[in-house]
């Protein structure tokens, strides 16, 4: 039996371990933030582990305005917003069909969508790169007339990658909602479209909100596809553009730290403001009603 004293000791040990690990997690971020406020010359003279002589926002100003980082934030938004909306729209349709209609390929369809999610991007990027070089797009999107090196291409790949997980989550969520609602809609004579738009979509709203928040941060954080599928430096999203702050020989790590903090901010803001949706997005559909 566990006595009160023992459990107290146990709790203390647990707190100590937790404190240690959270410090280990948080330390690099605090260190980055700390260096981002210090000028390059101070850290070259005294080393990174030293007390500050100057402490200012110069690095932030340089990163955001002089290096033009703000433009890449816009690029990120231009990719993430349409990608999330399209993903949610298409995934909700698939989820609707696989959870409300039973037909032969029902499970198989869901499995295929989910399995596609498991392929590591490193494995499929060469074929996708080759494909993108052969897919024609009008000159108005890309003057080279191929999907490679377009933001459209980046959006499509995110949709393709994320749709599996989104479908999985949304269909699980729909299964928790009583089928009787759907049945009464059908009894009232709703068509498939009306059923989807007027019954299912409103029911999905909380799930869509949570999933939307989660996917926005995932797509925003993507680095790999942006580097692989874009050639033009000016089209890059913020994650890939961060390396613009590095030179061939010379890297100002303080400036880079400021850039990294800036790139991190939207994710942190989303997390803290929409924390409830964020957590809900991670656990949604995991309990079956």
């Amino acid at each position: 039996m566990v006595t009160g004293k023992q459990s107290k000791v146990g709790a203390r040990i647990a707190v100590a371990i937790l404190a240690f690990f959270s410090l280990a997690w948080v330390f690099p971020i605090f260190f980055t933030v700390y260096e981002s406020f210090r000028p390059y010359n101070d850290t070259t003279k005294d080393g990174y582990v030293s007390l500050p002589k100057h402490f200012n926002f110069d690095n932030y100003w340089n990163a955001l305005i002089q290096s033009g980082m703000w433009r890449y934030f816009i690029n990120s938004v231009e990719v993430a917003v349409p990608a999330v909306l399209i993903t949610l729209f298409l995934a909700s349709m698939v989820a609707f069909v696989v959870s409300r209609y039973s037909f032969k390929f029902n499970i198989a369809l869901l499995m295929i969508f989910t399995a596609g999610n498991l392929l590591p991007p490193q494995l499929i990027f060469i074929p996708i790169f080759r494909l993108y070089l052969h897919i024609w797009v009008p000159t108005i999107i890309n003057e080279n007339n191929v999907l490679y090196d377009t933001q459209l291409g980046l959006i499509l790949i995110h949709v393709a990658i994320q749709i599996g997980f989104a479908t999985f989550v949304l269909s699980n969520y729909l299964r928790t909602i009583p089928k009787e609602i759907s049945e009464s809609a059908l009894v009232d004579g709703a068509s498939v479209w009306a059923h989807y738009f007027r019954v299912i979509l409103p029911l999905l709203r909380p799930a869509l909100a949570s999933l939307g928040v989660l996917m926005t941060t995932w797509i925003y954080n993507d680095f790999f596809w942006a580097v692989v599928l874009l050639k033009s430096g000016s089209k890059r999203p913020i994650t890939a553009a961060l390396s613009n702050l590095q030179g061939e020989f010379f890297t100002d790590f303080n400036l880079l730290a400021a850039g990294a903090v800036l790139a991190l901010l939207p994710t942190l803001i989303v997390f803290f403001v929409l924390r409830r949706q964020f957590v809900a997005g991670l656990t949604i559909g995991s309990t079956k009603g």
């Binding site: 790169f129 580097v227 050639k231 430096g233 000016s234 390396s243």
Partner: peptide, 19 residues
């Protein structure tokens, strides 16, 4: 089209085979 030095170098194969 300006790309940072390291990315440009690492991507050169794809760059030259792409557009």
């Amino acid at each position: 089209n300006r790309v940072d030095h390291n990315t440009f170098q690492n991507q050169i194969n794809q760059y030259l085979q792409g557009t």
